[in-house]
Amino acid sequence: MLFNKRTERIFFWVFFPLALLMPLFLAENTFFVSKLTSIMIFALFVMSLDYLVGRCGLITLGHAMFYGLGGYLFWMIAPEYEAVNFWVYTFYICMIAAAVALIIGFLVLRTSGIYMIMITLAFAQMAFYFFSDSIEFGGTDGLFIYVKPETSIFGLSFFDLDNPTHFYYLCLLSLFNTLIFFRILIRSRFGRVVDAIHENPGRTTALGYNIFVFRLMSYVIASALGAYAGYLFTLQYGFVNPSMLAWTTSGSALVMSILGGMGSIYGAILGTFVYEGLHYVLEHLTEHWMLFMGALIIAMVMVFKNGIAGSMEKLLEKRT
């Protein structure tokens, strides 16, 4: 079974049908549709981080590097005034991001624990300055994307990326695929070793596994998907800028992943929606929303350790 927990199946059958129908109710409200779209894009990013931190035990504070990279890569490799094929460029961007992740992962994964947290952060900061200091990449203002890609496969085109509702469905499809992909990955034989490494790295080495390779592979996979999320973000807003790579992007993604329930994958969607929802409400109530957000995060660490997914599972799963 792809989803081995009841809570997970319930979430799946509630969230996706609801998300599928949502635009029907909001047909006129394009603001809300694009707000939901951007939350889904970020949920995809948080999901890739959740896999890395929650399933692999690799705590990174530099995941936003790949989010930003996804956007900048598109600007770099796509011709400026010509519509390229969305799927082809998805493939390109994921592959290039994977190659970058291979190099950075090789350096970063030589370390572990707190050391790794600081090094991932420092690398992300390096990328941040690389883009924000260079004139070619538009400095702190970033860059505009003038032409959006077309989405035909074998001459058939289902999505028009200039139409917010179409783009909404493209992102929903991406989120759906990513969730399924991670579930398959976790259930796989590779996933078994990753779980084993997370629970007891020393033992796994003693059984003859080269844990570095498994960690590196996980890092590469998660980074490529993180870049894919950044690519979607860039297509939605038509620009890319260094704030995508800022450490606060990594930090808030981490908070959302915990809020959702670390390592549960589907919790990433819950966490992102709840966090963004709260953010939206607080921002409209007070300009000092950060104070409440901070207090909320502190409270969460203190008393709400299992996140939303964990708490739901406690309620819904049969005791064994």
Binding site: L254, M290, M293, I298, K305
Partner: peptide, 24 residues
């Protein structure tokens, strides 16, 4: 007695609070 992740999160929360207080 908590893990590194909790340390990171809690102190990120503190950054939010300090930044908000500074603005306030």
């Amino acid at each position: 007695r908590r893990n590194h992740l909790d340390q990171v999160l809690l102190t990120i929360g503190m950054i939010f609070v300090f930044n908000a207080l500074q603005g306030l």
